[in-house]
Nucleic acid binder design. Structure first.
Ligand SMILES: [Mn+2]
Ligand SMILES: [Mn+2]
Ligand SMILES: [Zn+2]
Ligand SMILES: [Zn+2]
Lengths: 142, 142
DNA sequence: AATTCTATTTAGAATGATTCTCATTCCTTA
DNA sequence: TAAGGAATGAGAATCATTCTAAATAGAATT
């Protein structure tokens, strides 16, 4: 199993690799993201962190989330112009946005398909990232 | 060739199909989108329309763009949380967002690939749309 | 043609997510 | 134990967009 301190260590490592400090705020926010991987917004994260850390500010939540994204520990996900959502799943994956419920689901993305998708680009386009977003209805899983 | 009135007729047709009226504002905005297909924002469209129609308001630009999207004459495109951009290309295509210049390029999307992308969805997911966004650098075409 | 009935347009206010400012606090290092 | 920079936090500011409500226009009906 992976202990809580292991996760903190991994976080501290990534942060210091980027010349940044590990702080209680960054740790608790990262843990919140790992605990419930439902693509919460910054406000969602704020609400989940508050019980553990009542004095934290929304500005700090935004700051820390941005830091985690810069360190490549978290992905920012956007649907239309809605609030940015945060995802700690680092495997290549697409997102399915359920229009009825608003839920976001991770869809595993095979390397082979990722390659094929990139191959539609004319040679003068050099893509640093590819994002695939599905929109529709998800029937409750069997 | 396709005349200006043909385009207005097609627009009027689509609008009345949806129980909506063809108006000078809707026509000029649609023509602006067809004339320079560089994925302008609402503010860009506003600026391009003003010379022809100085009294038009930004609220109307937003209203008309939304109407054109609802009629499936135009696609709304979003990159991160930037302002929504509008695209009159109705063929299935992906978007390439050049991070240096901010330019947006249409990337033709073969039906076969679209099918393969949809096929990664587990059977309980019913997608009504798929969006593919590339981000990176586009070298000037040869 | 005049009247009625709404769709549409418009100016300006309001909204909401995010970013900015800057004072305070916290660490790290000398 | 100072100093200096990093990080936090409260509140103001920003910006794209949406909302509100009044004016206008246009189609349909008398
Ligand atoms: Mn999106
Ligand atoms: Mn996007
Ligand atoms: Zn995800
Ligand atoms: Zn396009």
């Amino acid at each position: 199993m992976v202990s809580n301190t292991d996760l903190s260590d991994a976080l501290a490592q990534r942060l210091s690799d980027s010349g940044l400090r590990s702080t209680p705020q960054r740790e608790v926010i990262y843990n919140v993201l790992l605990t419930k991987r439902d693509h919460p917004t910054a406000e969602d994260v704020f609400a989940r962190v508050k019980p553990e850390m009542p004095m934290i500010s929304i500005a700090t939540v935004y700051n820390c989330l941005e830091t985690l994204v810069q360190c490549n520990l978290v992905r920012a996900v956007n649907f239309e112009r809605g609030p940015t959502r945060y995802c700690p799943n680092l495997h290549p994956h697409a997102h399915f946005h359920d229009e009825q419920t608003g839920a976001t689901h991770d869809i595993d993305l095979p390397d082979s398909l990722l390659g094929q998708v990139k191959s539609i680009l004319p040679p003068n386009f050099d893509a640093s990232s590819v994002e695939i977003i599905f929109r529709g209805k998800a029937r409750p899983a069997a």
